[in-house]
Structures are given as structure tokens and as C-alpha cells.
Design a protein around this nucleic acid. Structure first.
Lengths: 211, 211
DNA sequence: CGCTTTCGCTACGAGTCGTAGCGTAATACC
DNA sequence: GGTATTACGCTACGACTCGTAGCGAAAGCG
């Protein structure tokens, strides 16, 4: 999207340090004030830049918060723990830990809400957050198929639909648990969720002993 | 919460018609303006009441929208279609249809976002929306156990945890599909989702032919 | 060194917020 | 029926935020 060096442009380049400071200040303001009370003037003050600088770089509050929150999810990793269930549990716990942070909570849901009436914003969220993390699903599936834990996929279109479905189920469940039910997505919950995701409700539930 | 007849109170009672008009006007404003541009002054104008009347009944925009949106979900029903899979598909499709409406989209997510910093608001959402609809999960489970489709539950605490988990998975997945992925939760998607919910990813995926 | 772009700062009109104050309308109690 | 009590509609208000315009200065590019 935005090349950090501005390539062939003439004139004074935009300060990359200002970008970093502004996004950090945005997260800080989300923690202190939440979404609704967050003002661009406040963020500018925290970041040590002029308010006009913010408006030169971002169209508004929505776009700024999307960029500020997107950085939080880039720390997600898919560690190889030997089994699909363990891999899922690991990444879901990471996701839950990020969602538990106040800057992620109040920011993410608010921009999603706004995106229902702003196609450009929804696309920005998809490209900078959702699609970016869908890699985890694809990689996890590939690993599990190599291990023989999941059947290999025949139709690539069907495989893409399934990946989208998994992402909706995983991300949606964790978000709902954390934000709506307001309960921690801790180890116990994640184990139960993973069991349902892999073997469903109809199978016998206590396949593995308590641990 | 609020008795409609005001029981033993003296003085002029609050107009029930005003309540109805205000909530309807709120949903109308959500459709036209979305969450962020919705103002209480605008709602008052649409409802034909004074702005001060709104502030006398609701603490603010958040509480008003929660009440306006909560009414939308009361139309959810759990029709008996003979099998657990069919029952799930039926209620999920209803839920998706409600979420597809613009007044639900923009309103629900916004108040959830605000509730991350407002305990009273989160509790209001839980009691007037979430807990209210959890009946569907409990009823569906009971029916399926009567049919022998699900194993009977031994520990009541474990059963409650499972019901919460199911609700988080179902509601979360549909919300994520509709609002974040911005794809319709149509019959095809719901069939795939129900298969995963009942039999998991590890079981054979294509039990039923394409339809 | 000039050209170009960004930056910080100030100021501004427009819009919204939530409340106070007033006179009036509608009901409960006696 | 009279009176107390509460809700209602209306107007006005200070405080705040918004997003932009305009200015001089700063920082790279050629």
C-alpha cells in the first residue's frame, strides 16, 4: 500500500517515526479512553504531532484504528506441536490473548461495526487483518493433511470454502466468547472448543482424559 | 426490569406508545445513518418526541440501541424439523436473516464494542439479548437427546459449559461470516457449518451430496 | 541552491452533546 | 372534583469535537 521510502517522490519525506508514534498513541488512547471517547486531537497530542498531520495520512478515525489494531495480530504464530489439536489450541490461545487486550477489544469491534456501512473500510479490514491471518488456517490444514489427520482435499474451490468456514468458526467463537460472553478463552475452554471443531458434538465428548 | 404500568406510582405515566415509536425510530435511523452518525436528536425527531424525553428514559445512545436491537432477536424460533442437523440449520438461517438486516448489523456490533469498557452495558446486552436466546440451544439439545442424537449429559455444570460453548460457536461464526467476511450465511454455508458443528473436521466431510 | 512536500501551529464555522428551565398535560390519591 | 405528582414539549445554553484553511519553517531531492 504505502511504500515506506516514497521511492521517486520529491520533497520532504514523511516521517516513519511519526507513523510508529501515531499508531502506538492510538492503541494507548484506546486503552485509556475506548473507541467512542477517542479523538484524533488526543491521539495527536500523545504522539507529539500536530492534528493536521493525522488528517494528512488517514482519512479518519476508522482507518487509523484499523491500522493500529492490525499490527497487534501480526505476532500470531503457528507453532508445530505435533498434532492438529495441539496446533489449534496453541494458536487459539494466542488469538485469545491478543483479544483480551483492551486496545484490541474496543478497537476491533468498533471498526467492524463501522465497516457495515463503509465498503472501503471493510476491505481495509479484510486485507490488513483477516486475509493476513488466514495463512494460519491454510498452514495448519496442510500440516494436518501431511500427518494424515485430515483427509486430502480434492476440489480446490471446496478447499477454499472450507478454509473460510474454519476461519469464521474459530475467529467468531473466540471473539464471541471474549467480547460478548465476557468470559476468558482459557485452556479449559480452548480444549473443549478444539474437541468440537475436530470431532463435533455428536461424537462422544470425553475422548481425552482431563489434564 | 421496567413495569409497563408503573404500579403504584403517582403522576402522569410514561407513554408506552412513545417507547414503541422511539425504538422503531432508532432502528430506522440505524438503517439510514448507521451507528456513528446516529444522533439522539435525530431519533427524537423521527419518533415525534422531544429530545429530553429520550434522555429521561435512556442513559444514552448505547442503552437505547441495545433495547432497539434486542427486539429484533425475539422473533427467533426453533422449529422441530425432525433431526438435530435440520433444527440447527433452520435456526441458524433465521439468525443469519436477522443479522443481514442493516439495523442489526451496525447496531449490534457497535454496542458490543462499547460494552468492552462499560460493565453495565455488557450486562444489559447479556440479559436482553444473549441469555434470552440461549433458550434455543437448551431446547435444541434436549430435543436431540430425546431423539438419541446426542449423548445424555451427566454433570449439570459440564452441560452448562457445553451450552455456552455451543452458543459462542454458533453466534460467533454467523456474526463473523456476515459482518467480517461480509459473505451471506446462505443455505450452502449453513449446511457446511452444521456438518462441522456436529461431526467435526476430522470426520468425512461429504456425507450429503451437493444440493 | 532551488523545488517540492511535509510539518507544527493557530484559528475557524459547523455540528453534537447533555442539561436546565419553563409552562402544560395526564394520571393517582383523597 | 380538587390537588399533588410526574411526564411531556419546547427553547436555549456552554462545552466539546470535527475537519479544514492558511501560514511560515523544516527537510530531502536533483
Amino acid at each position: 500500500m504505502q511504500s515506506s521510502t516514497h521511492a521517486g517522490r520529491a520533497g520532504r519525506p514523511r516521517s516513519a517515526a511519526a507513523d510508529t508514534a501515531i499508531l502506538a498513541a492510538t492503541r494507548e488512547a484506546l486503552v485509556d479512553l475506548g473507541w467512542s471517547r477517542l479523538t484524533l486531537g488526543d491521539v495527536a497530542g500523545r504522539a507529539g504531532v500536530a492534528k493536521t498531520t493525522l488528517y494528512r495520512r488517514w482519512a479518519g478515525k476508522n482507518e487509523l484504528v484499523v491500522d493500529a489494531v492490525a499490527e497487534l495480530f501480526d505476532e500470531l504464530r503457528l507453532p508445530d506441536r505435533g498434532s492438529l489439536a495441539a496446533d489449534i489450541e496453541g494458536v487459539v490461545l494466542q488469538f485469545a490473548a491478543i483479544l483480551a487486550r483492551p486496545e484490541a477489544k474496543s478497537g476491533l469491534m468498533a471498526v467492524v461495526a463501522e465497516s457495515t456501512r463503509d465498503d472501503a473500510l471493510r476491505e481495509r479490514i479484510r486485507t490488513s487483518i483477516v486475509e493476513r491471518q488466514k495463512r494460519l488456517v491454510l498452514e495448519g490444514r496442510a500440516r494436518a493433511q501431511a500427518r494424515g489427520e485430515l483427509p486430502p482435499e480434492t476440489d480446490p474451490a471446496e478447499a477454499a470454502r472450507t478454509a473460510d468456514l474454519i476461519f469464521d468458526v474459530v475467529a467468531g467463537a473466540v471473539v464471541h466468547r471474549t467480547l460478548v460472553s465476557a468470559q476468558p478463552a482459557d485452556g479449559e475452554w480452548v480444549r473443549g472448543f478444539t474437541q468440537v471443531l475436530l470431532w463435533g458434538l455428536a461424537s462422544r465428548p470425553a475422548e481425552s482424559p482431563a489434564g
